[in-house]
Design a protein around this nucleic acid. Structure first.
Lengths: 199, 199
DNA sequence: CCACATTTGTAGTGCTCACTACATTATGGA
DNA sequence: TCCATAATGTAGTGAGCACTACAAATGTGG
């Protein structure tokens, strides 16, 4: 049977461009015109490949998550809970102020509150944030079992805390905080972990 | 001379309703139709009183800030820096999950990233957040002078930290975190202050 | 009671939005 | 070579957006 005309653009490269537009303007602030221009394609190609604006966002988020996965692996491989926290927050300070990306975090800026009809966008972003939090919690459960965290420590609470600080840094970065300011926040945050660690 | 027909609605009550719509849907997600319906007025009344959608947001933010002012006064009157932090974050945990309001924080949900033409909305919100941060910083400068904080403590960094955690809690609350979860975050966060406190 | 100033409700305005119809072009298989 | 299939570029589509023209309504000062 026939195979049809082949796609003339690289879907991953196009998704990277779309990701940046969503990152900079949020889901609702990003227009199809801006997206197609950044992706270098026309609307029909976008809809053929991704179905809808929301479908495009999900595809961009999948790619964002995939890119982040190896980064998280390295963080979680740190020997102690304290070091996991430090790598995580210091890494966040760097990436959220990296001029190669828009400032802040896509999972926060993308849209915390949306208009009627886009209610699942905040949901979708929250689910991705929760994924990171769960990874952290599992890591801290292990840290507690290994005696790295005190027996009184609550791994879920610590993961939530780290996740909250991470999101908070995203808010700060989105409003122009520089790398040094974010590193200060990270440094103070990590102190809360020393209280929960053995030695 | 003549004074014209008097306004038939209470501007402050209308602003409270508008505040809630912006809070729940964000600036861009809120439509004039939703706003006018919630405020119980028609578009011409809205534009006569507030000039534009952005003008309405600013007026709502002014009212939000005014309401928050006395709350902040009480927080800042706490005897120690540690207690300032605790009151602040515990209070945030409560208000951001108060069923009387939409979940989260208006200054965060309102819009971190906006579309072309609304660039100053994120700016405006950031300015209001910075106000709180400055109040905290001033309070911590005093705490340091009073010997309540260690001489090695950085008041600006601590204020930034508290501001970041506050924003992070807003992100969590917006995605459905319950009061207990936020209180856990607050409790962990406060531990970072004990490191910086004398005795 | 009357001119005047301002608000109100009705009913739109132009514009931009996400999305698509359609003819064309480019491939693989028979 | 010719058909089936699918992507592309052009040029829109209806819907919903922020905002407003206009006339009726409602108050004040003289």
């Amino acid at each position: 049977m026939a195979m049809g005309r082949p796609r003339a653009f690289d879907a991953d490269a196009a998704l990277d461009q779309a990701m940046e537009v969503f990152w900079r303007h949020g889901y609702e602030g990003a227009t199809i015109a801006q997206l197609t221009e950044a992706m270098g394609i026309n609307p029909p190609s976008l809809y053929a490949a991704f179905g809808s604006k929301e479908g495009l966002l999900k595809a961009a988020l999948d790619r964002y998550s995939a890119k982040r996965a190896c980064w998280m692996e390295e963080i979680l491989s740190a020997p102690t809970a304290r070091e996991v926290a430090e790598r995580m927050l210091m890494g966040t300070a760097d990436t959220q102020t990296d001029p190669a990306n828009p400032p802040g975090c896509l999972l926060v800026q993308g849209g915390l509150a949306c208009g009627t009809g886009s209610e699942n966008v905040p949901f979708e972003l929250a689910a991705r944030r929760a994924e990171t939090e769960n990874q952290l919690r599992d890591r801290f459960v292990r840290a507690k079992a290994e005696g790295d965290l005190k027996q009184t420590a609550d791994p879920a609470a610590l993961a939530r805390y780290l996740s909250a600080v991470n999101a908070g840094m995203g808010v700060m970065a989105s409003s122009g905080a520089d790398r040094e300011a974010l590193r200060q926040v990270a440094a103070v945050s990590v102190k809360a972990f020393e209280e929960q660690s053995n030695s």
